[in-house]
Amino acid sequence: MTDDRITSPTSQIPDPWQDLRQLTRARIGLGRTGNGLKTNDVLDFQASHAQARDAVHTPLNIEILTGSLGDEPYYCVQSRAPDRSTYLRRPDLGRRLDPEAAATLPKGDWDVVFVAGDGLSSFATQQSAISLFRAMQAQLADWTVAPLVIATQARVALGDEIAVMLGARMVVMMIGERPGLSVADSMGVYLTYGPYVGCPDSSRNCLSNIHPHGMTVPAAAAKLSWLMREARHLKLTGVGLKDAAPEVVTLETSVPLLEKDNDQ
């Protein structure tokens, strides 16, 4: 962030915390002025927070997203949350399709539907959703894959209703995760077999932390395709599939409130 700026004279003094900083990304050993933080550290924090907030509040740019799809068909839908402010207060509305949008999804017969949802970080979806979808199309040559659905003001469970409307036996929700100060563009992927409206989170499998400095798109695609083949074979997702996964497939399930976050 400050690389291209003129360094201030004080930064020339050797920093006794330099070695310790190799051990953790935590903001340790921040200097003091009186009891307060130094100017650069205050601004650095504010810059990270600004990036995280922008990730939450910037609308998904659908034009750019679909531009990279070429001639491929796609659907755009929105949830019952009409705007971001409502979306943040009413997770229940983000889990259901706007009725008019639902009517635009024709019933078909598909092995799987992929949904690119904005979630809590449009930056993440903008960055990784199409490339993951492309990677998965290559991996799933023998599957019938429904046209991509782009969903705004979306929570994870919105994918369930989308799958029901389209007649898909499995849904992959690619969705922006709640941004942190250090990573604002992390995407999560939720796989659900036999989804229905009201489907519990315990019947999903999740890959998280997909971003350039976390899990890469090719790594996510490899794990996801293993999961999808096993899910089709076992006819389930969730805890049962997690238990069957080999070591290399690191899986997460939802964690309880106050232990972590519950933004699904």
Partner: peptide, 23 residues
């Protein structure tokens, strides 16, 4: 938490500096 930034739980609390200032 260091610098008010909890890097595990991904939320913001108070920094040690904040607490010294408060005291």
């Amino acid at each position: 938490v260091p610098g008010a930034d909890d890097i595990m739980l991904n939320y913001q609390s108070l920094s040690f500096h904040d607490l010294l200032s408060l005291r």
